[in-house]
Amino acid sequence: MEYNYYLQNCSNDDVIQFSNAIHKVGQLKTAIEFAANDQNKLPYTLLYALQEKGVKLENLVAMQKLLGDGLDAEVLKIGAKGWQKGKIRVRVTLEFEPEEPEIIETESPLDDLRRMMNNNT
């Protein structure tokens, strides 16, 4: 499970509010990891969705590996000399994108003095 940089700076006891509810960040991370990795709806839903589009996986165990540590795979790229071995996996990413604070330019008390000095010269 990947978390964007901002959530990595949050402790599990920090809180996040959305949909009129407040949750601890750790509770949210745990729930999403459970949904992605346990024999819950996500692995079944993804398995059937892939199969409907012609992507064949042997069984639910293969789907759980795809969502977890990954499945052994090989890639043949155009122009490559041969197959490259590795792992393929699906990552579920939890992100929080903070809004950029609006920068309000405030006038400095020294601006009046600068204007007076410029007017006198």
Rank of each mutant, 00 (worst) to 15 (best):
Q27G: 13
Y44W: 05
Q51N: 12
G82W: 06
A21S: 10
T45V: 01
K29G: 12
E107Q: 14
R91C: 02
F96R: 07
N118Q: 15
A49Q: 09
N59G: 10
E74C: 04
Y6C: 01
Y3D: 11
L7F: 02
R114F: 08
N4C: 06
N40P: 04
M1S: 13
K41L: 13
T30N: 07
G68M: 01
Y3L: 14
D69Y: 00
L42K: 00
N12D: 15
M116K: 13
I103H: 07
Q64W: 01
D112L: 13
I16C: 10
E52Q: 07
Y6E: 14
S108D: 11
E33D: 14
N12S: 11
K56M: 10
Q17S: 14
Q17K: 06
V61Y: 11
E99T: 15
A36K: 00
Q51E: 11
E100K: 14
T45C: 03
K81M: 05
V55W: 04
L47M: 13
N12F: 08
P98C: 05
N37I: 00
A31R: 00
E102T: 15
T106A: 15
Y3M: 08
A80C: 05
V75L: 13
E95N: 11
M116L: 13
E95G: 12
M117N: 14
K87Y: 02
T121Q: 13
E95W: 05
